[in-house]
Amino acid sequence: MLRDLQTQFRVGLLGGDAAPALASIENDVITPAQRFGIYRNNVLGSLAGALAAAFPVIERLVGERFFRAAARSFVQQSPPTVPQLLAYGDGFPAFLEAFPPAQSVRYLGDVGRLEWGRVDSMFAADAPALEPSALTSLPPEALADLLFAAHPATRLIRSAQFPIHTIWQVNQPSNPDPRPVDPGLGAEAVLVTRPGLAVETNPVTPGDAVFVQCLLQQQPLAAAAEAALGAEPDFDLQGALAAHLGRGTFSRVMQASR
């Protein structure tokens, strides 16, 4: 029955027992195992290739051969559930973090989250960016309780431990000779935005990371700014707001109903 055959193929194609699938294949010219292998290699190889396209810096960091092997393990463990490769890979950073052979490099997960944030941002919905006039037209007393709606393409990636922006920037595939980076440099946060159509990747200060995080969680402006000052006494609210207006971090503002 077709149901059995398709089940047997799925299992065998993802690295499980292929014997039941092979039993249904005619032995003609070359062996069933050779014929089935063409499909298996294409499934695993094409999906690993899709991950390589989404995680170029991870591939750069670990080398192509390690990457391919790790990617195939991930594919076997977590194959796609939607037929769009542009949406495949969100679980790969967590997989790397738990991947025993990669335990000696603890920052792969967070650098991977940065890369996935860029992919996710690139295919997010279109929306207008917040216009400065939307802020200046408000009475001063309305500002403290103002709520900000993130642009659909905005992603904030905060590492608890690692300088992910520095690692990501230095290890771009286009950089032929990356300088060494000390992973103990300190934690960094990265804001991915898409003003216009270009995905931008910018480091943000600890205070700004808290500021954006609070606003994304629908805390009002005054509370977000105070939390940012708590995290970074020198937090520059005006500078941060100007940067977010320029980068299209937010899409619109709403007055909190009191």
Partner: peptide, 8 residues
């Protein structure tokens, strides 16, 4: 901040 940006 708004003045620094002008209009987008």
């Amino acid at each position: 901040a708004a003045a620094a940006l002008g209009t987008t």
